[in-house]
Write a protein that binds this DNA or RNA. Sequence first.
DNA 1: CGGCATCTTGACCTTTGTCAAACGCGGTGG
DNA 2: CCACCGCGTTTGACAAAGGTCAAGATGCCG
Lengths: 255, 255
Amino acid sequence: MNVFDKKIAEQNDAQTPVAPPSRYRPSIYAAPFQKGGDGAAVELLSAADQDALMAISQLVSVRRNAMLYAEGGEAKFVYNVISGVAKTFQLQPNGDRHVTAFLFPRDLLGLSVDGQYVATAQALTPLLAYQIPVKALEAILERDPRLNIGLLCKLCHELRSSQSHAITVSKQHASARLAGFLLWVEHVSAQSGGGTSEFTLPMGRRDMADYLGLTIETVSRALNALEAEGAILRRGPRAIELLDGGKLREAAGLV
Amino acid sequence: MNVFDKKIAEQNDAQTPVAPPSRYRPSIYAAPFQKGGDGAAVELLSAADQDALMAISQLVSVRRNAMLYAEGGEAKFVYNVISGVAKTFQLQPNGDRHVTAFLFPRDLLGLSVDGQYVATAQALTPLLAYQIPVKALEAILERDPRLNIGLLCKLCHELRSSQSHAITVSKQHASARLAGFLLWVEHVSAQSGGGTSEFTLPMGRRDMADYLGLTIETVSRALNALEAEGAILRRGPRAIELLDGGKLREAAGLV
DNA sequence: CGGCATCTTGACCTTTGTCAAACGCGGTGG
DNA sequence: CCACCGCGTTTGACAAAGGTCAAGATGCCG
């Protein structure tokens, strides 16, 4: 596929409805506020919430590299990822590209300010997601406090991750950032499928670098370092085997 | 005041109820999701919301340097800042201290995971805040969708700031981080009082450094650089005059 | 006025960014 | 089936930014 074809693929048929809405159900995972759990993430949508959301939403299939929405566009939908991985990024005035988040199954994306998306969202793998019209969602929220609280939890969860990401990215050395990142990807990959200690990075070096605030060269060198320490093994550019989780956690500064 | 007395001050009488609850009302500012505004922050609490919150809350006065709550403590309250400035920070396993946020009037703090505070909150100036019992708040949220949506907006707002902070802190140079930070402090200071282009940093170099992911030496040098460019003028360690907002925005990479 | 904490300055060194080139893999076309 | 091509990744040499360590200046508060 040449560059021209690729551009086309990103623009046309970005999202195709999938029938039947079938066995997939909306799902949002996050750690709740309340005491009791062990801080672990749990499903925040009740069966009723899921039904309500399914009633107003459409399950869409998104091709790899296709855009879900663009920064500045009218925010008509929020998305609940069912399978696959997406990224959101922003272009800075100086031309830098910042990857603000990677979205895995049970994540929510599409938050807006003033009716406009604040970032561009693109699928990193073939993606299945519920496309939820904001208007209809607002109508539900107006009269369903429980769903509201679920969303509040999710947002708090995101907020905390975002803050801890800011921390990671601000003070840690390159290999510490990488180590933390790999642990995270391994974790979320594991809970949506994979069972072994080998996992696949759904994104390329560029995206990792733009997410971690590094250059692709530094990402590469940091991977070297982690491999030299025996923490990981590279089976391919995107195939990572986790050899020693302890060493990785240590490298990540989690002691 | 010696170190010992200071410790005492941080632990005893951290918060003293203020009577009468008087003229101050709870207030939360953030940019809403919906189209229509210009993306500017607005008051999210209706008069009814404010009344409901006042009915269950207590206005407390917190001394400079006193703690509002400690990381890991039982999260009984959330706080709505009325006047003054607070910071939240976390201690990392390696001993680093990360300032996760500075809280200004109309901000909310005290979010928890699993019933525990995730950071320590400390007043940087004498502080007035509504202390809202989480239990009672949850009861209100259960039956008040509008207040829920207000909180959702606030959290989204925080989330966006947090992400943009992660961006700032990850790729920008030291003086760009400083410039962005100064613009932000100037902005929030201006909307809660001050009228001129001169403002006071409510925090010391250590906190700025721990927030921006720099060392205090670098903060100092970056301030030098900005002053040399004629963007700011230091009237004292904490007194900054904004001479050229354009230059500052340029230095912040906002072109 | 004195003492102490905070802030600034200076010299040096580590880490990461930059620029450039080589490598490896997958896909295409001969 | 194999050579070639293009892209993403890796590697290397160098420069620049910021961290570190140490000392000196400043300002605040008693």
